[in-house]
Design a protein around this nucleic acid. Structure first.
Length: 578
DNA sequence: CTAGGGTTAG
């Protein structure tokens, strides 16, 4: 006997199960309490059992819950189950796909919605336009905009706000403004104002952003934050800070924005101070705050503060997500503790490219080339595709280990097997690789073969190699290039001066000195560095005498210097005895 | 049902 599965209409089902609506509401309540995939699956099974899988309201709830828990494949199978999905179901799917960063899928769902002749609503368009922005689908978004006009939703503020953001993400602030101007007077709310301010800010037009902000009668914290972030990104930490100081209510986003602002400006101590201020004000930081502050600690090289913060993370039950994970990996390796980096890496339950790159970079700078290459192959076996940053680390690993042939092989593979166009950074690595190995002609040849202008980093690497391998001819070429590229960089010029002096070419020495004086670069500030003594971070410069720094720091540096000299002698004897 | 903050390389 064959069972025919004629679609059961809800009326039909209700006849057979008079208490169905009660059962459904029980399941929907259960759904809200779900916090694992298994629980979701079990609720789904119960839904099928009572034939609620054809009830669009229940399925809408189910799909929304799946999406908010990033279980988009469960949402997919739910959609496939429904024979006649209505607009609510499609809206939930489209919104969910965008939430789960699968924008292309959202566009696909919109297409099948149109094919099924289901009429879109304003909800459909606001999610869909967001998806077009994420998918970088300008043309598709524009055609959707046309559809919006046809269906009359161009007068809907939510849709208009989405469009403002959409055009801004493609750099079309003028288009954003056009949409904004079309919003009817009574309809313009804080959201749309804030979005328009962000649009100007992301275009770097802080004047227009500010004008809009000043013209607002009603602002909320998000509005302030948007403007602060705009100033921060344009490198104006002064304006960002003064807005931050005078805003009426600060939330964690305001504080995080300021921390990120100082981190981006490489003012890491101020970033840490901000973080402490946030804690002192009684606010609880979240994962976003933590990954930002960890990055600041990484650059400070302060293992003490870094460990304090890692402890804080473990104490306060933060999610060890990919952001916190990769910043911790980077922080530990920059602070000299590769063991801890690896421990964090293995603890992560999800790893993205950032996590892998941070670890490979850590191994590379610690001179563990084999480790870096091993992790690279593990990464590939887990189907994670490397990007150009991965290869900067791989090439660096080869350089630090002196693996010239290996490095050349990877440079070729990067281009041919991985289809990654070499950037100036990669050439920099290769020039460094050749230069350190003494292959100065090869390095120069590579520079000449480049399709773009070499930068100061590249010439500087070669100059460094010339110094070690005593090649005055090529050094001169580097010096000439550097003199025009970075006339203010005393480091390069002094290196060249020293080389000429060693060769008793005093005429050249006088020449360079004269040029430097002509450029007025003698008063250039020397390199700054930091060191941590007993939890205190002390700053010092290359030329600081004992009068410029504390006694404690001075003696510490003396001791460090002696240790370095000793280990250099050690290294030298090891090399010569070999 | 919308908006404001995040990680690697340089």
């Amino acid at each position: 006997m064959q069972l025919t599965t004629a679609p059961l209409s809800m009326a039909n089902v209700l006849e057979r199960q008079p208490d169905l609506l009660d059962r459904i509401s029980v399941l929907v309540d259960q759904l809200k309490g779900c916090c694992s995939r298994r629980e979701l699956q079990s609720v789904f099974a119960s839904m099928i059992k009572i034939s609620a899988d054809q009830d669009c309201f229940s399925m809408n709830q189910f799909i929304s819950r799946c999406s908010s828990m990033s279980q988009s494949d469960l949402a997919d199978s739910a959609l496939a189950q429904i024979e006649e999905p209505n607009v609510f179901v499609y809206n939930a799917m489209i919104r969910g796909s965008v939430q789960c960063s699968r924008p292309l899928q959202a566009l696909e769902q919109y297409r099948s919605m149109s094919r099924a002749d289901v009429r879109p609503t304003s909800y459909t368009f606001s999610s869909l336009i967001k998806g077009c922005g994420l998918a970088k689908a300008l043309r598709f978004g524009e055609s959707v905009h046309g559809g919006i006009w046809k269906s009359g939703f161009n007068w809907h503020v939510f849709v208009q706000t989405a469009l403002i953001e959409f055009y801004a993400s493609f750099g079309g602030v003028a288009e954003s403004r056009k949409v904004w101007d079309e919003i009817q007077d009574g309809e313009r709310d804080v959201f749309s104002w804030t979005t328009m301010i962000s649009a100007y800010a992301s275009a770097g037009d802080m004047l227009s952003a500010r004008r809009l902000f000043d013209g607002m009668h009603e602002r909320n914290t998000a509005t302030w934050n948007a403007l602060i972030d705009g100033y921060a990104r344009s490198g104006d930490s002064i304006s960002a800070r003064s807005l931050f100081e005078c805003m009426p209510v600060k939330d964690i986003i305001s504080w995080t924005t300021m921390i990120a602002c100082y981190t981006q400006e490489q003012r890491y101590q101020e970033a840490v101070a901000m973080f402490k201020g946030m804690i002192a004000s009684g606010l609880i930081p979240d994962e976003v705050t933590m990954s930002t502050i960890i990055s600041a600690c990484a650059h400070l090289g302060s293992l003490d503060i870094g460990r304090e913060i890692h402890y804080y993370i473990m104490q306060n039950q933060f999610q060890l997500d990919v952001f916190i994970g990769s910043s911790l990996i980077d922080m530990y390796s920059k602070c000299g503790s590769l063991e801890r980096s690896l421990m964090v890496f293995y603890k992560l339950r999800e790893r993205n490219l950032f996590c892998w790159n941070s670890l490979i970079e850590g191994l590379a700078v610690h001179g563990l080339a084999k480790g870096a290459l091993l992790m690279f192959s593990k990464m590939e076996s887990e189907k994670m595709n490397p990007n150009w940053i991965t290869f900067v680390s791989i090439l660096n690993a080869c350089t630090h280990a002196g693996l010239v042939n290996e490095g050349q092989r990877w440079f070729m593979r990067m281009k041919e097997d991985y289809r990654i166009t070499p950037r100036v950074e990669h050439y920099g690595c290769m020039v460094d690789l050749f230069s350190r190995a003494g292959l100065l002609e090869d390095a120069l040849g590579l520079i000449r073969s480049m399709e773009f202008e070499p930068n100061a980093f590249i010439w500087g690497s070669l100059l460094g190699g010339c110094r070690v391998h005593r090649n005055l001819e090529i050094a001169r070429v580097c010096g000439d290039a550097l003199m025009s590229l970075e006339p203010n960089n005393t480091g390069h010029h002094m290196l060249l001066v020293n080389m000429y002096a060693e060769n008793n070419r005093w005429g050249e020495v006088v020449n360079i000195r004269r040029t430097m004086k002509g450029n007025g670069v003698e008063k250039e500030f020397p390199g700054q560095s930091w060191i941590e003594i007993g939890g205190e971070t002390c700053q010092f410069a290359a030329s600081d005498g004992n009068h410029a720094v504390s006694d404690q720091l001075f003696f510490f540096l003396k001791k460090l210097d002696a240790q370095i000299r000793l280990s250099n002698i050690d290294m030298h004897s090891i090399c010569t005895n070999y």
